[in-house]
């Protein structure tokens, strides 16, 4: 299975990136796929770079601690797109369909379905990590909202000797 996927790696990654970017309206999707400069198009280039890494990681079945920081880069973007949590993580599931289509020509292969299902278990594991990541970023936004509100009246609170320990602690060396 891994060899079959490795052989079609470029095709699969390209299709996966295109499917992911389809969450945006068509005019935006064109821009996200076309512009290669990471500072002119941080969203599109991040998605392309990280999905390529994630696909390779799935092939190599690497441990979660290597995957999560790179997965976070994508989820960090999708979590603030106002599209809802389901769409924020939907790109992971889209890979299943992308792979099935890529391997459609090989369907005469008797063992393909079983091997496909085995590989999809890795995708499911990635999806669970994506749920985790998404909820972490949503929580980060909630914490930031509180901290920002308090920062606005910082000197007033200090003059009133308000206890600042009630602030949500900043995340230590949080990735992303």
């Amino acid at each position: 299975m891994d060899e079959q996927l490795q052989a079609k790696r470029a095709e699969i990654v390209r299709a996966w990136v295109e499917r992911t970017v389809e969450m945006y309206p068509a005019d935006a999707a064109k821009f996200l796929l076309r512009v290669n400069d990471p500072f002119s198009n941080p969203v599109g280039t991040t998605i392309a770079l990280e999905l390529e890494f994630l696909f390779d990681a799935l092939l190599r079945d690497v441990p979660p601690d290597e995957v999560v920081p790179r997965l976070d880069r994508v989820i960090q973007i999708t979590s603030v797109q106002d599209v809802g949590s389901a769409r924020a993580v939907s790109f992971v599931f889209a890979l299943k369909e992308v792979i099935r289509r890529a391997l459609a020509a090989d369907r005469a292969d008797a063992g393909l379905l079983r091997r496909c299902l085995e590989f999809e278990q890795r995708i499911d594991a990635l999806a669970l990590l994506a749920f985790d990541s998404c909820s972490r970023f949503l929580q980060r936004i909630a914490d930031i909202r509180v901290r920002e509100a308090k920062r606005r009246v910082w000197s007033l609170m200090r003059m009133l000797k308000v206890d600042w320990d009630h602030l949500p602690a900043e995340e230590e060396g949080a990735g992303g």
């Binding site: 941080p42 797109q81 936004i141 909202r145």
Partner: peptide
């Protein structure tokens, strides 16, 4: 303001990606 924070975070992303670099 805070009620449009998700929008501000999207809008701040290009600046942030250069900072991250």
């Amino acid at each position: 303001t805070d009620e449009n924070m998700e929008m501000r975070l999207r809008g701040g992303m290009p600046r942030a990606s250069a900072v991250r670099h």
